[in-house]
Measured scan of single mutants.
Amino acid sequence: EDNEEPDPLPDNWEMAYTEKGEVYFIDHNTKTTSWLDPRLAKKAK
C-alpha cells in the first residue's frame, strides 16, 4: 500500500484556491504565485 504523506510545502509557501477552485501556490519569499507545485519542481530535477 502506498500511503505516502505528501511532502510539506517549502518554507514560506502557501497553497491557495482561486474563485473557481483551482489550486495555486504563493511564494511569500519572492511575493509571487505559481500554478506549479514547488514540491513537484524539486522532484523533476
Rank of each mutant, 00 (worst) to 15 (best):
E1A: 10
E1V: 13
E1S: 08
D2V: 14
D2N: 14
D2G: 15
D2E: 08
D2W: 11
N3K: 13
N3S: 13
N3F: 11
E4C: 12
E4A: 13
E4P: 15
D7M: 12
D7Q: 14
D7S: 13
D7V: 15
P8S: 10
P8R: 14
P8D: 08
L9S: 04
P10R: 03
P10G: 04
P10Q: 04
P10H: 02
P10M: 08
P10F: 02
P10W: 04
D11Q: 15
D11R: 13
D11K: 11
D11M: 11
N12S: 07
N12V: 01
N12L: 08
N12T: 07
N12W: 06
N12M: 06
N12C: 08
E14A: 04
E14N: 07
M15H: 04
M15R: 09
M15L: 11
M15A: 04
A16E: 07
A16T: 05
A16F: 01
A16C: 06
Y17F: 11
Y17C: 12
Y17L: 13
Y17T: 11
Y17G: 05
Y17K: 10
Y17D: 05
T18K: 04
T18L: 03
T18R: 00
T18C: 04
E19P: 12
E19D: 11
K20R: 11
K20L: 10
K20V: 10
G21F: 05
G21T: 01
G21Y: 05
G21C: 06
G21V: 00
G21S: 07
G21L: 05
E22C: 05
E22R: 04
E22F: 02
E22M: 06
V23L: 10
Y24A: 01
Y24V: 02
Y24E: 01
Y24N: 00
Y24Q: 01
Y24P: 00
F25Q: 07
F25Y: 02
F25P: 00
F25E: 02
I26W: 01
I26F: 03
I26Q: 06
D27N: 08
D27Y: 07
D27L: 00
H28N: 04
H28T: 05
H28R: 07
H28Q: 06
N29D: 09
N29Y: 08
N29V: 10
N29R: 10
T30F: 02
T30R: 07
T30E: 08
T30L: 07
T30A: 09
K31R: 12
T32G: 05
T32A: 10
T32L: 07
T33Q: 02
T33R: 03
T33G: 01
T33C: 13
T33D: 00
S34Y: 05
W35D: 03
W35E: 02
W35G: 03
W35T: 04
W35K: 03
L36H: 06
L36I: 15
L36V: 13
L36T: 08
L36N: 07
L36W: 10
L36Q: 07
D37R: 08
D37M: 03
D37I: 01
D37F: 00
P38V: 00
R39P: 02
R39Q: 03
L40E: 13
L40T: 12
K42E: 13
K42N: 13
K42V: 14
K42T: 08
K42C: 15
K42Y: 11
K43G: 14
K43F: 08
A44Y: 15
K45S: 14
K45W: 12
